[in-house]
Amino acid sequence: MRVTLLGTGDTTGTPTVGCDCDTCETARERGIERTRFSVHVENERTGESLLVDFSPDFRYQFLRDEVPLPDAAVITHIHFDHLDGLGNVFRVFDSLEVYAADETDPQTGKSVAETVRDDYHYLDPIDVRPTTPLEPVRICGFDVTLVPVEHPPLLCYGLAIEDPETGAKLSLSGDTSYGVPERSREALADPDLLLADAIVPARFCEHHPVGGRHEGPDGVPRTFGTKHMTREGALALADDLEAERTRLVHLAHYYPVDEAFAEPLAVDGETYVL
């Protein structure tokens, strides 16, 4: 299993357009990028590859990192920074299976799968495959499990991706607070690599209108507002899941420059072989 981090940024990415903060300026000077979220997972046994989320930066990411076009994709939720790159299949793919959760979101009255089908009905190559959360499905030779997480007000999912032959396991928290349900934690547990949402350092909760949540024993918030983990929350989740290795993703440019590029914060283009 070869994992390439195509996009490790939040909804605006780093550097952010029009921003001259120290972090964005340093990213420009050093040629470092965190484009909108997307992960490429290649099965070197079968010669197939799976894409997790369609970043709006899809075209640029694939040209930059020179990874193979995916044979299938999974959409974790319908926020634009995870979905709107799907239009790039036009005149690029002959066919593409797109897997997404089949449970109805009370907020929209549709499942993620139905939203993808309806919003991209004009794209003939797309074959939407409604998928039941917490039930593994075989995709590109991997056992892939969508796991419910907490990203209000919309339903959102993390992923466990396992190679049934080698035992390699990749877990993605998805966009979530620290309040990941227990059954989802069980599905995500013991990964060789965990990609965990860590939008900002915990001390930034003082700037959020609703503050922070899920304080640890030290009183440090593990959730920023209601829908993303803090850095400290993501690291606590990694400990909870007993991850062998952790990379923090979905990172905002609000990280101070002296922390923004420190371990274990990821940047685009990182690759891991599991």
Rank of each mutant, 00 (worst) to 15 (best):
G212P: 01
G13Y: 06
S38D: 07
E25G: 05
M1K: 00
L195F: 11
G13Q: 08
P181S: 03
G211P: 00
E270Q: 13
P148K: 02
E263Q: 13
G9C: 05
L6P: 01
E162L: 01
T8M: 10
T14C: 12
P256Y: 08
G47K: 09
D218P: 00
L251H: 05
T115N: 10
L172P: 00
T16K: 15
V137T: 12
Y122I: 11
I139T: 00
H79L: 11
A72E: 02
L195K: 06
T11P: 08
E186D: 14
T23E: 01
A27N: 02
R30S: 12
S49E: 05
T246Y: 03
C156D: 14
V210L: 10
L155F: 10
Y122L: 11
C24W: 02
R129I: 14
F58V: 03
L50T: 02
A236F: 04
A266I: 07
L146C: 00
A168M: 04
G174L: 02
V180D: 00
G109Y: 10
L123G: 07
P15F: 06
A100E: 01
V267F: 06
P217T: 09
H207V: 08
D192W: 09
E182L: 14
P70R: 08
G211D: 03
E162Q: 10
A252M: 06
V144H: 00
R185I: 11
R59E: 14
P125Q: 08
T132I: 05
D65L: 11
G225F: 07
P56N: 08
V273P: 02
S171T: 14
T14E: 08
P70Y: 11
E44F: 10
D94A: 11
Y254L: 13
C140G: 13
E66K: 15
D127C: 10
P56A: 04
A266L: 09
V273T: 15
P201Q: 06
D102K: 09
T4R: 01
V149G: 00
C156K: 02
D53A: 09
G18E: 06
T131L: 09
C19V: 13
D84H: 14
F90W: 15
E114A: 13
E29D: 14
L159M: 03
D84R: 12
R30Q: 14
